[in-house]
Simulated assay, not measured.
Amino acid sequence: MLELKSLTKCFGANMAVDNVSFHIDRPMMIGIIGASGAGKSTLLRMMNRLTPATSGAVRFEGQDVLALRGAGMRKWQSECAMIFQQFNLVPRMDVVSNVLHGTLNRRSTVASLFNLYPQSDIHRAIDILDRLGIAGHASKRAEALSGGQQQRVAIARGLMQDPKIILADEPIASLDPMNAQVVMEALRRIHDEDGRTVIANLHTLDTARRYCDRVIGMRAGRVVFDGSPEQLTTGAARDIYGADAGFSESATSTSIDALERPDRAPIPA
């Protein structure tokens, strides 16, 4: 379905992503974890074609993603939706119009300039907002919503693209625990109900263990762990973060003890 082969990105002498290879053979929810600067965000941005790769390959259903140009690249970016930590909404625009921006890649320039949307798209946008529990805010300005609500608007905008893959770059990094739980549950439902692959960069180990089917750990641009949440042992976590025996909650905003429980501990409200 999706294959990365020896994907590399250099910024001058700095190797941000170093020879990363993995493949996904069926829809699943994947968490990518690692310390700041491990290369997680750069990796997702290369997959979405927001950042050019230095070398390597990204293939989706046999298609060479890195070779796409023009309309082909825009089509790929529609099929591979990106959700950002800072939401990237238009603050003074109403919620439903922000969601409708997810259709820009398939609309004419004139329609885009004058914000002309077919009724079918408007109804679909409201249906998606309702699915995410925020349809009641459709007419409000995006800036009037809480951070968690704005992130759900951003997810709704991504769903308007009808993507096959959703890439989420630290989608809960700026949210409080309650809103983080709501957003992660929304992403998990999208995977479970729609069969879409979701790949999320995460900054807490307990979140990755609770919501993801597979966890990829990165350190200094390289993949150093790739396994199930149950395989994310204390030793594996220390290796991912380059930590010694003093590795603790302060490193990842989660307790190391949570890694040693066989169940996936819920995020505290």
Rank of each mutant, 00 (worst) to 15 (best):
E3K: 14
L4E: 04
L4V: 14
S6V: 08
K9T: 04
C10V: 10
C10S: 05
F11E: 03
F11M: 10
M15R: 15
V17A: 15
D18I: 08
H23C: 12
P27Y: 05
M29F: 15
A35R: 01
G39W: 13
K40C: 09
S41Y: 02
R45Y: 09
R49A: 06
A53Q: 08
R59V: 13
Q63V: 06
L66H: 01
L66G: 00
L66F: 03
L68F: 14
A71R: 10
A71K: 04
S78M: 07
E79M: 13
A81E: 09
A81L: 09
I83K: 00
Q85E: 14
F87C: 06
N98V: 06
N98C: 08
H101W: 00
G102D: 12
R106K: 11
R106L: 10
V110A: 08
S112C: 10
L116F: 10
Y117P: 02
Y117S: 03
S120A: 11
D121R: 09
I122D: 07
I122Y: 07
H123L: 13
A125M: 11
A125E: 05
D127T: 08
I134R: 05
H137Y: 13
S139K: 07
A142I: 10
E143L: 12
Q149R: 03
Q149Y: 11
Q149G: 05
R157C: 06
D162Q: 15
P163W: 01
I166Q: 14
L167G: 05
A168T: 06
P171G: 06
S174T: 02
D176G: 13
M178D: 12
N179Y: 11
A180M: 09
A180E: 12
Q181M: 12
Q181Y: 08
V183Q: 03
V183D: 06
M184D: 02
L187Y: 07
G195T: 12
T197W: 09
T197K: 09
A200R: 06
L202W: 15
T204K: 07
L205K: 02
M218S: 03
G221Y: 07
G221V: 05
E230L: 14
E230V: 08
Q231K: 08
E249N: 04
S250F: 14
S253E: 14
S253T: 05
S255R: 07
D257S: 05
D257V: 01
R264V: 01
